[in-house]
Each structure stands twice: as structure tokens, then as C-alpha cells.
């Protein structure tokens, strides 16, 4: 039980790290939101699962927290992305796609 929990904590840390690395490496705000949301959501769930193995008596509250994260995390990401698009931030395009007309959104 102890080491299964530790493994999940380690996985959570690894995905959170990948999310942070994505924030540094990605070229624009939309791609950063993408990596940030996905990696950090699964990282947080993995943390919760690991804590569930270490403290089985907490699992009901952990389920509540996990459900809350799953519902709110994508909503906040979409709200941020929508705000950036409305504010006029154009999504970054790969060099080979630059000639193709990007979608015009206002």
C-alpha cells in the first residue's frame, strides 16, 4: 500500500513537471494552456490517488476534490483561451502553415 501510494505521488509529480516544462517550451498562450491544463489535471488526480492509498480513510473527500478539479479545470482553461481570442491574440501557426489562411475570429 505504502509504495503504491508513493508511485502515484511520483507519477503526479512527473506530470506536473511536464506541464511546467510545456509552459516554457510552447510558442504561444493557447498551446501553453493546452499542456498546462492536461498535465496538471492528471497530475493532481494522480496525487489524490496516491494520497488515497496512503490514507484510505480519506477517500470520500478525495473523490469530492477530484470531481471538483475535473469540472473546474477545463472551464477555467476555456475561459482564459476565449478571453485571449476575443482580446485579439492570434494563435501561433507552424511555419509551413503560415501561407494558409488562418481562421479569422473576432
Amino acid at each position: 500500500m505504502r509504495w503504491v501510494g508513493d508511485v502515484f505521488l511520483l507519477i503526479g509529480a512527473a506530470f506536473s513537471f511536464l506541464g511546467a516544462l510545456g509552459l516554457v517550451r510552447m510558442p504561444d498562450v493557447f498551446n501553453r494552456i493546452q499542456t498546462g491544463t492536461k498535465a496538471v489535471t492528471l497530475g493532481a488526480l494522480s496525487f489524490l490517488l496516491g494520497i488515497g492509498f496512503l490514507h484510505p480513510e480519506w477517500w470520500t473527500k478525495l473523490v469530492c476534490i477530484g470531481g471538483f478539479i475535473l469540472v473546474t479545470s477545463p472551464v477555467s482553461s476555456s475561459a482564459l483561451a476565449r478571453a485571449f481570442l476575443i482580446a485579439g491574440v492570434r494563435p501561433w501557426r507552424a511555419p509551413e502553415d503560415r501561407e494558409a489562411p488562418a481562421r479569422e475570429e473576432g
Binding site: L18, T35, A39, A94, E96, A102
Partner: peptide
Amino acid sequence: ANLDVARRVLSPSLPIRPAV
């Protein structure tokens, strides 16, 4: 999705081709 993100973030050439 997370394995996909991990692959893209870790590969040196950053294989992304975003569009809306």
C-alpha cells in the same frame, strides 16, 4: 492526452501544428 502532451513537450523538435 497526457502521454501525448508528454511526447510533444519532451521531443526536441516540438512537433506541433496548431490551428483553430
